[in-house]
């Protein structure tokens, strides 16, 4: 019987420019298919840009945001976007947009915005923290 592991995943790069988000998605999907647990996926640095619903890639290309959103729906994943990094880069949810006086929000379904404490908590609570970056 294979030992089951509780993972958390960190994504430090945005979609398309770097492969980090694709690799993190493939890793997360494969781990779940093997029966492992994903405690949290944390998006930091430009990784927060994976969580905007306004990306429109060409139709014959993968849609990285939709991939994450669908995986989150299937497995009740906790996709967390760092609030400080997100504010720098213009990724907002409704309550942040209202609070900061912005006229729109863009957070994608399945993602939530929270603090860096969620990253440290993931490191403490998981057996393994796996980082995908440049």
């Amino acid at each position: 019987m294979e030992q089951l592991v509780k993972f958390s995943v960190v994504v430090n790069e945005g979609p398309y420019t770097h492969q980090a988000s694709d690799s993190a998605y493939q890793f997360t999907k494969a781990a779940l298919e093997k029966g492992h647990e994903i405690y949290r996926v944390f998006f930091y640095h430009d990784g927060v840009n994976n969580g905007t619903r306004l990306t429109v890639p060409p139709q014959d290309e993968r849609n990285i945001q939709v991939n994450w959103t669908e995986l989150a729906e299937q497995h009740e994943l906790d996709l967390v976007v760092c609030v400080a990094a997100a504010q720098r880069r213009g990724v907002l949810d409704k309550s942040e947009a209202d609070r900061l006086g912005k006229d729109a929000d863009n957070i994608a379904p399945g993602f939530r915005i929270s603090g860096l404490g969620q990253l440290i908590d993931a490191g403490i609570a998981s057996d393994r923290l796996v980082t995908f970056g440049d």
């Binding site: 860096l116 440290i120 490191g123 403490i124 609570a125």
Partner: peptide, 16 residues
Amino acid sequence: MEEPDVSQPGVTKKFM
């Protein structure tokens, strides 16, 4: 900065 959620009291790990 935002208030962290210190949700795992008692667990000490080595972070680098």
